[in-house]
Amino acid sequence: MTARSGVWLVVMVVALVLVPVLIGSPFYVNLASQVLIYAILAMSLNLLVGFGGLTSLGHAAYLGFAAYVTIYLTTLAGFGQFSGALIALVATTGLAMLFGFLALRASGLGFLMITLALGQILWGLAFRWVSLTGGDNGLGGMQRPHPFGIDLGDPNAFYYFALCFFLVAFAGIALFVRSPFGHSLRGSRDQPRRMRALGYNVWFVQWCGFVYAGFWGAIAGILYAYYNQFVSPHALNLMTSAETLLMVIAGGAGTLFGPIVGAVLVVVLKNVVSAYIARWVMLLGAVFVMIVLFMPEGLVPGTTRWTKLALGRRRRAAGGGPGEATGTAAVQERSS
């Protein structure tokens, strides 16, 4: 991590800690909690889309499955809060192992189609297996846990609870991406053949990335269950998967901060727009088309490149050669 992104990291953490103090109103603090939950989900999907080159359209599966298991276990099956969450985490990671095995039989568009179909299976189960899942009515009646005697019913307390998980997820994903294993995942994305020739088991590397992404998806799902205290098939449907993918792509796939920016953008846009018009889905579709056509690399790399170019130009005007070098290097980095 360069010095500049280190600075950004500190700024981000300080800003996130100060959010409840700065905005005060419970409505917006809750909105911020939602952003954090979706940011965890988007960061986990980014492991696949950005770093693994595997575009999944079924990532809501882990969010919804973990939420269903958590709520089912703690309300209907009589498990405790901690054991319920733990079992949900293990079960969802197991689901990711199975789905990874199936989806990685193909690559590219085949992978996308299979993940979509697998996600739809879970949606179908939730929607039609009424005796188990409550069907369209979903499952509710869940209480938020009281870790160390803190009541998470309070918006601020829940925000800090979610923030802890968010920071751990960010660190866990950042370290993973920068580890040798993360590099081999990126290598499998860019040059699968060369990686094979070098003796890497590309399939296994991708499968591990897939399972790790499912693990963080499960964390997001458990937080989702705590936040809403309710889950319905909506958490599993294609819309949710597509929204998550939009967060990753709009923010910038393959960057650490991109999915977070994307999550802020999509969650805020959705809540603001839904308050005024009923056509959120149509807007989501239009945003998708616009992003792909006009800003395919996403907001974070797009603006970074523009700033670098602008800075480079200014430095060059001041009579420096290195400025130009950084500018072109940035462009080359993108195009390679």
């Binding site: 575009t55 359209l57 889905v281 579709g285």
Partner: peptide, 23 residues
């Protein structure tokens, strides 16, 4: 316009699917 970019194409068709469905 997106010839040769299968991923971009598939995302555009997804966006259009949402527009049509909501329409």
């Amino acid at each position: 316009r997106l010839a040769g970019q299968p991923l971009a194409q598939v995302l555009v068709t997804l966006g259009i699917a949402f527009i049509i469905a909501d329409g």
